[in-house]
């Protein structure tokens, strides 16, 4: 019974934690953050060249490429500093192989951060290997200053596993 109680307790903690966040956010945030998701459509143009377009979600199956986009806007007349945007990677998707190499990512649930090539993964048998796109659990962007009224967008390309 102890184990069972623990299992129940863990989701409760998480639930209360996530409830707490929107409560803070409700006091008219200085930065509005909004996300959307598009899927990547590859088509061929009149010249026979491959063209990739971001289109609304239609049919999504394993292998479909998605782009999670997050828009941010400083709605105040003050400078916003140390803006850090963290986007978790859903377990059903992996970071796209052609994602920006300089993205700051985590492969351990957000404990340590760096470029993908600087991170490693410890296997169950204790051995370590270089992290791959499929290991990424979070992507993070840091923007030192957003000027008053400034806005921008970051993108996280992903592939459905």
């Amino acid at each position: 019974m102890k184990t069972f109680a623990k299992i129940i307790a863990a989701p409760l903690l998480i639930a209360s934690a996530s409830l707490g966040v929107p409560a803070l956010a409700q006091e008219t945030p200085s930065v509005v953050v909004s996300g959307d998701v598009k899927q990547v459509e590859v088509s061929t143009n009149a010249d026979g060249e491959e063209v990739t377009n971001l289109v609304d979600i239609d049919l999504t199956v394993p292998g479909t490429r998605l782009v999670f986009r997050t828009n941010y806007e400083n709605t105040t007349s003050e400078v916003i500093r140390n803006f850090t945007l963290t986007n978790p990677m859903h377990p059903s998707v992996r970071l796209a192989p052609d994602a920006d190499e300089d993205l700051t990512v985590s492969v351990d649930g957000g404990d340590t951060w760096g470029s993908l090539s600087s991170l490693s993964v410890t296997e169950e048998d204790g051995s370590t290997r270089t992290a791959t796109h499929a290991d990424v659990t979070h992507v993070r962007w840091t923007i030192a200053e957003i000027p008053a009224g400034g806005s921008g967008q970051v993108q996280m390309p992903a592939v459905i596993r």
């Binding site: 966040v21 929107p22 803070l24 956010a25 945030p29 200085s30 930065v31 509005v32 953050v33 909004s34 996300g35 959307d36 998701v37 998605l66 999670f68 997050t70 941010y72 105040t76 003050e78 916003i80 500093r81 140390n82 803006f83 850090t84 945007l85 963290t86 986007n87 978790p88 859903h90 059903s92 998707v93 957003i146 459905i160």
Partner: peptide
Amino acid sequence: LIENTATATYEDGEGEKTVDSNTV
């Protein structure tokens, strides 16, 4: 269901804040 919510932290004149995006 692949759900995604981004979280931002920042400092404005009042101190450190946290805000979530909508969930897609």
